[in-house]
Design a protein around this nucleic acid. Structure first.
Lengths: 154, 154
DNA sequence: CTACTTGCAAATTGTTTGCATGGAC
DNA sequence: GTCCATGCAAACAATTTGCAAGTAG
Protein backbone atom coordinates (compact mmCIF):
# COMPACT_ATOMS: atom_id res chain seq x y z
CA UNK A 1 0.00 0.00 0.00
CA UNK A 2 0.99 3.65 -0.09
CA UNK A 3 3.25 3.77 -3.07
CA UNK A 4 4.98 7.08 -2.68
CA UNK A 5 5.64 7.53 -6.37
CA UNK A 6 7.44 10.81 -6.08
CA UNK A 7 9.85 10.22 -8.89
CA UNK A 8 12.29 13.06 -8.58
CA UNK A 9 13.58 15.47 -6.02
CA UNK A 10 12.04 18.95 -6.06
CA UNK A 11 15.19 20.34 -7.64
CA UNK A 12 15.04 17.94 -10.55
CA UNK A 13 11.34 18.44 -11.06
CA UNK A 14 11.89 22.15 -11.33
CA UNK A 15 14.70 21.78 -13.81
CA UNK A 16 12.76 19.31 -15.91
CA UNK A 17 9.86 21.70 -15.99
CA UNK A 18 12.16 24.44 -17.22
CA UNK A 19 11.74 26.54 -14.09
CA UNK A 20 14.39 28.34 -12.12
CA UNK A 21 15.60 26.45 -9.12
CA UNK A 22 15.36 28.63 -6.06
CA UNK A 23 15.58 27.60 -2.44
CA UNK A 24 12.05 28.81 -1.86
CA UNK A 25 10.62 26.64 -4.61
CA UNK A 26 12.52 23.59 -3.43
CA UNK A 27 11.22 24.12 0.06
CA UNK A 28 7.62 24.57 -1.03
CA UNK A 29 7.69 21.46 -3.18
CA UNK A 30 9.21 19.44 -0.38
CA UNK A 31 6.62 20.63 2.13
CA UNK A 32 3.82 19.73 -0.27
CA UNK A 33 5.37 16.30 -0.80
CA UNK A 34 5.62 15.74 2.92
CA UNK A 35 2.13 16.94 3.74
CA UNK A 36 -0.39 14.20 4.25
CA UNK A 37 -3.22 16.68 4.21
CA UNK A 38 -3.92 19.43 1.74
CA UNK A 39 -2.52 22.84 2.41
CA UNK A 40 -3.69 26.30 1.65
CA UNK A 41 -1.27 29.12 0.92
CA UNK A 42 -1.35 30.39 4.48
CA UNK A 43 -0.61 27.00 6.02
CA UNK A 44 2.13 26.32 3.51
CA UNK A 45 3.60 29.70 4.38
CA UNK A 46 3.41 28.89 8.08
CA UNK A 47 5.31 25.66 7.60
CA UNK A 48 7.82 27.22 5.26
CA UNK A 49 8.50 30.01 7.72
CA UNK A 50 9.76 27.50 10.26
CA UNK A 51 12.62 26.56 7.98
CA UNK A 52 13.03 29.83 6.17
CA UNK A 53 11.91 32.63 8.47
CA UNK A 54 12.26 35.37 5.88
CA UNK A 55 10.12 33.78 3.22
CA UNK A 56 7.19 35.94 2.27
CA UNK A 57 3.57 35.04 1.82
CA UNK A 58 3.49 36.62 -1.60
CA UNK A 59 6.40 34.44 -2.63
CA UNK A 60 4.32 31.45 -1.65
CA UNK A 61 1.40 32.67 -3.73
CA UNK A 62 3.57 33.53 -6.69
CA UNK A 63 5.32 30.19 -6.65
CA UNK A 64 2.16 28.20 -6.19
CA UNK A 65 0.95 29.85 -9.34
CA UNK A 66 4.16 29.14 -11.22
CA UNK A 67 4.37 25.55 -10.03
CA UNK A 68 0.79 24.98 -10.97
CA UNK A 69 1.31 26.24 -14.49
CA UNK A 70 4.40 24.06 -14.73
CA UNK A 71 2.26 21.07 -13.81
CA UNK A 72 4.12 20.33 -10.59
CA UNK A 73 1.33 21.30 -8.24
CA UNK A 74 -2.44 20.89 -8.39
CA UNK A 75 -4.88 23.34 -7.00
CA UNK A 76 -8.05 22.06 -5.39
CA UNK A 77 -11.22 23.30 -3.84
CA UNK A 78 -12.91 21.56 -0.99
CA UNK A 79 -16.30 21.55 0.62
CA UNK A 80 -17.63 24.49 2.53
CA UNK A 81 -14.67 26.59 1.81
CA UNK A 82 -14.46 27.31 -1.86
CA UNK A 83 -13.19 30.71 -0.97
CA UNK A 84 -9.85 29.20 -0.08
CA UNK A 85 -7.56 27.35 -2.43
CA UNK A 86 -5.74 24.18 -1.44
CA UNK A 87 -2.71 22.62 -3.04
CA UNK A 88 -1.11 19.25 -3.44
CA UNK A 89 1.79 17.73 -5.34
CA UNK A 90 0.60 16.89 -8.84
CA UNK A 91 0.04 13.18 -9.42
CA UNK A 92 -0.18 11.39 -12.77
CA UNK A 93 -3.38 9.60 -11.77
CA UNK A 94 -6.51 11.70 -11.77
CA UNK A 95 -8.30 11.62 -8.48
CA UNK A 96 -11.09 13.46 -6.78
CA UNK A 97 -12.01 14.42 -3.26
CA UNK A 98 -14.85 13.96 -0.86
CA UNK A 99 -15.02 16.15 2.23
CA UNK A 100 -16.95 15.23 5.35
CA UNK A 101 -19.05 18.18 6.45
CA UNK A 102 -19.14 16.82 9.95
CA UNK A 103 -15.53 16.00 10.81
CA UNK A 104 -13.68 17.61 7.90
CA UNK A 105 -12.03 14.39 6.78
CA UNK A 106 -11.02 14.27 3.14
CA UNK A 107 -11.38 11.03 1.21
CA UNK A 108 -9.53 10.70 -2.06
CA UNK A 109 -10.94 8.40 -4.68
CA UNK A 110 -10.56 7.48 -8.31
CA UNK A 111 -13.34 6.72 -10.73
CA UNK A 112 -13.43 5.96 -14.44
CA UNK A 113 -16.86 7.58 -14.66
CA UNK A 114 -15.49 11.08 -14.92
CA UNK A 115 -13.50 10.28 -18.02
CA UNK A 116 -16.67 8.76 -19.41
CA UNK A 117 -18.43 12.06 -18.81
CA UNK A 118 -15.55 13.59 -20.70
CA UNK A 119 -16.12 11.26 -23.65
CA UNK A 120 -19.87 11.70 -23.61
CA UNK A 121 -19.51 15.46 -23.70
CA UNK A 122 -17.06 15.19 -26.55
CA UNK A 123 -19.40 13.11 -28.71
CA UNK A 124 -22.65 14.79 -27.67
CA UNK A 125 -21.61 18.43 -27.59
CA UNK A 126 -18.28 18.42 -29.36
CA UNK A 127 -16.59 20.06 -26.42
CA UNK A 128 -13.05 19.23 -25.40
CA UNK A 129 -12.69 19.06 -21.64
CA UNK A 130 -9.32 20.22 -20.42
CA UNK A 131 -10.01 20.30 -16.74
CA UNK A 132 -12.68 19.15 -14.34
CA UNK A 133 -13.19 20.67 -10.95
CA UNK A 134 -15.05 18.18 -8.89
CA UNK A 135 -15.59 17.98 -5.20
CA UNK A 136 -18.13 16.10 -3.21
CA UNK A 137 -19.26 16.87 0.25
CA UNK A 138 -21.42 14.94 2.67
CA UNK A 139 -21.04 12.72 5.68
CA UNK A 140 -18.29 10.14 5.99
CA UNK A 141 -18.79 6.57 7.12
CA UNK A 142 -17.58 7.20 10.66
CA UNK A 143 -19.81 10.22 11.16
CA UNK A 144 -22.82 8.40 9.71
CA UNK A 145 -22.22 5.69 12.26
CA UNK A 146 -21.98 7.98 15.24
CA UNK A 147 -25.02 9.89 14.08
CA UNK A 148 -27.23 6.84 13.94
CA UNK A 149 -25.97 5.80 17.36
CA UNK A 150 -26.95 9.17 18.74
CA UNK A 151 -30.43 8.81 17.37
CA UNK A 152 -30.89 5.42 19.00
CA UNK A 153 -30.35 7.11 22.35
CA UNK A 154 -27.56 9.09 24.00
CA UNK B 1 -38.41 22.68 -26.88
CA UNK B 2 -37.43 24.97 -24.07
CA UNK B 3 -39.97 24.01 -21.50
CA UNK B 4 -39.88 26.92 -19.12
CA UNK B 5 -40.99 24.89 -16.15
CA UNK B 6 -41.05 27.74 -13.71
CA UNK B 7 -44.06 26.51 -11.80
CA UNK B 8 -44.87 29.42 -9.55
CA UNK B 9 -44.41 33.13 -9.40
CA UNK B 10 -41.57 34.39 -7.19
CA UNK B 11 -44.08 35.49 -4.58
CA UNK B 12 -45.59 32.03 -4.30
CA UNK B 13 -42.24 30.32 -4.22
CA UNK B 14 -41.20 32.50 -1.33
CA UNK B 15 -44.35 31.81 0.61
CA UNK B 16 -44.15 28.07 -0.02
CA UNK B 17 -40.60 28.09 1.21
CA UNK B 18 -41.71 29.82 4.39
CA UNK B 19 -39.79 32.98 3.63
CA UNK B 20 -40.90 36.54 3.99
CA UNK B 21 -42.15 38.10 0.80
CA UNK B 22 -40.33 41.35 0.18
CA UNK B 23 -40.19 43.39 -2.98
CA UNK B 24 -36.44 42.90 -3.15
CA UNK B 25 -36.71 39.12 -3.03
CA UNK B 26 -39.43 39.07 -5.65
CA UNK B 27 -37.31 41.21 -7.91
CA UNK B 28 -34.20 39.10 -7.46
CA UNK B 29 -36.06 35.87 -8.15
CA UNK B 30 -37.64 37.36 -11.25
CA UNK B 31 -34.32 38.60 -12.57
CA UNK B 32 -32.78 35.20 -12.06
CA UNK B 33 -35.73 33.58 -13.84
CA UNK B 34 -35.38 35.95 -16.74
CA UNK B 35 -31.63 35.64 -17.07
CA UNK B 36 -30.47 33.34 -19.82
CA UNK B 37 -26.96 33.44 -18.54
CA UNK B 38 -25.68 32.96 -15.02
CA UNK B 39 -25.31 35.98 -12.82
CA UNK B 40 -22.95 36.86 -10.07
CA UNK B 41 -24.02 39.04 -7.17
CA UNK B 42 -22.65 42.19 -8.73
CA UNK B 43 -24.42 41.68 -12.05
CA UNK B 44 -27.66 40.78 -10.32
CA UNK B 45 -27.30 43.94 -8.27
CA UNK B 46 -26.69 45.97 -11.42
CA UNK B 47 -29.85 44.66 -13.03
CA UNK B 48 -31.88 45.04 -9.88
CA UNK B 49 -30.75 48.63 -9.50
CA UNK B 50 -32.38 49.54 -12.78
CA UNK B 51 -35.79 48.71 -11.39
CA UNK B 52 -35.13 49.47 -7.75
CA UNK B 53 -32.46 52.16 -7.58
CA UNK B 54 -32.14 52.05 -3.81
CA UNK B 55 -31.53 48.35 -3.48
CA UNK B 56 -28.25 47.63 -1.80
CA UNK B 57 -25.53 45.18 -2.76
CA UNK B 58 -25.53 43.67 0.68
CA UNK B 59 -29.24 43.03 0.37
CA UNK B 60 -28.48 41.08 -2.78
CA UNK B 61 -25.84 39.04 -0.99
CA UNK B 62 -28.02 38.43 2.03
CA UNK B 63 -30.97 37.36 -0.06
CA UNK B 64 -28.95 35.14 -2.32
CA UNK B 65 -27.85 33.35 0.79
CA UNK B 66 -31.38 33.08 2.16
CA UNK B 67 -32.86 31.96 -1.14
CA UNK B 68 -30.15 29.39 -1.52
CA UNK B 69 -30.83 27.89 1.88
CA UNK B 70 -34.51 27.88 1.05
CA UNK B 71 -33.75 25.86 -2.06
CA UNK B 72 -35.00 28.51 -4.47
CA UNK B 73 -31.62 29.44 -5.90
CA UNK B 74 -28.54 27.41 -6.74
CA UNK B 75 -25.04 28.68 -6.41
CA UNK B 76 -22.45 27.63 -8.96
CA UNK B 77 -18.80 28.02 -9.71
CA UNK B 78 -17.46 28.26 -13.21
CA UNK B 79 -14.15 27.87 -14.93
CA UNK B 80 -11.34 30.31 -14.48
CA UNK B 81 -13.21 32.29 -11.96
CA UNK B 82 -13.84 30.17 -8.93
CA UNK B 83 -13.30 33.25 -6.87
CA UNK B 84 -16.68 34.54 -7.96
CA UNK B 85 -20.00 32.91 -7.19
CA UNK B 86 -22.73 32.61 -9.78
CA UNK B 87 -26.41 31.98 -9.26
CA UNK B 88 -29.36 30.51 -11.08
CA UNK B 89 -32.96 29.63 -10.33
CA UNK B 90 -33.03 26.21 -8.72
CA UNK B 91 -34.27 23.45 -11.01
CA UNK B 92 -35.57 20.02 -10.02
CA UNK B 93 -33.32 18.27 -12.57
CA UNK B 94 -29.68 18.08 -11.64
CA UNK B 95 -27.48 19.50 -14.30
CA UNK B 96 -23.87 20.44 -14.72
CA UNK B 97 -21.90 23.06 -16.56
CA UNK B 98 -19.11 23.20 -19.03
CA UNK B 99 -17.31 26.50 -19.60
CA UNK B 100 -15.34 27.32 -22.70
CA UNK B 101 -11.99 28.75 -21.72
CA UNK B 102 -11.72 30.43 -25.07
CA UNK B 103 -15.04 32.22 -25.59
CA UNK B 104 -16.60 31.88 -22.14
CA UNK B 105 -19.69 30.08 -23.38
CA UNK B 106 -21.42 27.91 -20.83
CA UNK B 107 -22.95 24.61 -21.89
CA UNK B 108 -25.42 22.96 -19.56
CA UNK B 109 -25.79 19.22 -19.68
CA UNK B 110 -27.25 16.31 -17.79
CA UNK B 111 -25.61 13.00 -17.15
CA UNK B 112 -26.56 9.97 -15.08
CA UNK B 113 -22.87 9.26 -14.49
CA UNK B 114 -22.53 11.68 -11.63
CA UNK B 115 -25.24 9.99 -9.61
CA UNK B 116 -23.47 6.73 -10.34
CA UNK B 117 -20.32 8.21 -8.83
CA UNK B 118 -22.48 9.08 -5.87
CA UNK B 119 -23.68 5.47 -5.55
CA UNK B 120 -20.22 4.03 -6.04
CA UNK B 121 -18.85 6.22 -3.29
CA UNK B 122 -21.66 5.16 -1.02
CA UNK B 123 -21.00 1.47 -1.49
CA UNK B 124 -17.22 1.65 -1.69
CA UNK B 125 -16.46 4.17 1.01
CA UNK B 126 -19.70 4.35 2.94
CA UNK B 127 -19.88 8.11 2.48
CA UNK B 128 -23.15 9.91 2.03
CA UNK B 129 -22.86 12.67 -0.54
CA UNK B 130 -25.01 15.69 0.20
CA UNK B 131 -23.67 18.03 -2.39
CA UNK B 132 -21.43 17.92 -5.41
CA UNK B 133 -19.62 20.87 -6.87
CA UNK B 134 -18.79 19.99 -10.41
CA UNK B 135 -17.65 22.12 -13.27
CA UNK B 136 -15.88 21.26 -16.46
CA UNK B 137 -13.76 23.56 -18.51
CA UNK B 138 -12.19 23.25 -21.91
CA UNK B 139 -12.81 24.31 -25.46
CA UNK B 140 -16.28 24.37 -27.01
CA UNK B 141 -17.13 22.99 -30.43
CA UNK B 142 -17.11 26.37 -32.16
CA UNK B 143 -13.74 27.36 -30.73
CA UNK B 144 -12.24 23.98 -31.60
CA UNK B 145 -13.36 24.56 -35.15
CA UNK B 146 -11.88 28.03 -35.48
CA UNK B 147 -8.67 26.86 -33.87
CA UNK B 148 -8.08 24.08 -36.38
CA UNK B 149 -8.87 26.52 -39.19
CA UNK B 150 -6.23 28.89 -37.90
CA UNK B 151 -3.65 26.12 -37.84
CA UNK B 152 -4.32 25.20 -41.45
CA UNK B 153 -3.18 28.70 -42.38
CA UNK B 154 -4.57 32.19 -41.93
C1' DC C 1 25.22 40.51 -17.33
C1' DT C 2 20.39 39.87 -18.02
C1' DA C 3 16.09 38.33 -16.86
C1' DC C 4 13.60 36.33 -13.44
C1' DT C 5 12.65 36.11 -8.19
C1' DT C 6 12.18 37.84 -3.84
C1' DG C 7 10.66 40.64 0.26
C1' DC C 8 7.99 44.26 1.68
C1' DA C 9 4.08 47.23 1.76
C1' DA C 10 0.11 48.65 -0.21
C1' DA C 11 -3.84 47.70 -3.14
C1' DT C 12 -7.71 44.90 -4.88
C1' DT C 13 -11.85 42.32 -4.77
C1' DG C 14 -15.65 39.45 -3.49
C1' DT C 15 -18.21 39.00 0.44
C1' DT C 16 -19.72 39.83 5.32
C1' DT C 17 -21.18 42.40 9.39
C1' DG C 18 -22.97 46.08 12.93
C1' DC C 19 -26.37 49.10 13.50
C1' DA C 20 -30.47 52.00 13.26
C1' DT C 21 -34.64 52.29 10.51
C1' DG C 22 -38.41 50.27 7.87
C1' DG C 23 -41.65 46.66 6.64
C1' DA C 24 -43.92 41.84 6.78
C1' DC C 25 -47.01 39.15 9.20
C1' DG D 1 -46.50 44.83 18.17
C1' DT D 2 -42.76 41.74 17.22
C1' DC D 3 -39.27 40.07 14.58
C1' DC D 4 -37.09 39.96 10.37
C1' DA D 5 -35.27 42.64 6.31
C1' DT D 6 -33.07 46.63 4.51
C1' DG D 7 -29.68 50.45 3.48
C1' DC D 8 -25.49 52.28 4.58
C1' DA D 9 -20.79 52.28 5.93
C1' DA D 10 -17.17 49.97 7.59
C1' DA D 11 -14.73 45.52 8.11
C1' DC D 12 -12.71 41.14 6.37
C1' DA D 13 -9.91 37.76 4.25
C1' DA D 14 -7.71 35.73 0.41
C1' DT D 15 -5.03 36.99 -3.17
C1' DT D 16 -2.46 40.25 -6.23
C1' DT D 17 0.65 43.93 -7.57
C1' DG D 18 4.48 47.71 -7.86
C1' DC D 19 8.91 48.36 -6.84
C1' DA D 20 13.80 48.10 -5.54
C1' DA D 21 17.21 44.79 -4.34
C1' DG D 22 18.93 39.99 -4.86
C1' DT D 23 20.14 35.83 -7.47
C1' DA D 24 19.97 31.94 -11.05
C1' DG D 25 21.65 30.79 -15.44
Amino acid sequence: METPTLPEAPEERLRNAGQRVTSQRILLLRLLDEANDHLDAEELYRRASKEMPDINLSTVYRNLSVLQEAGLVSQRYFARDHSREYFETATPEEHYHFTCLSCGAIVEFETPLISRVRNDLKTEHGVDIRHACICFEGVCAACMESKSKQQRGT
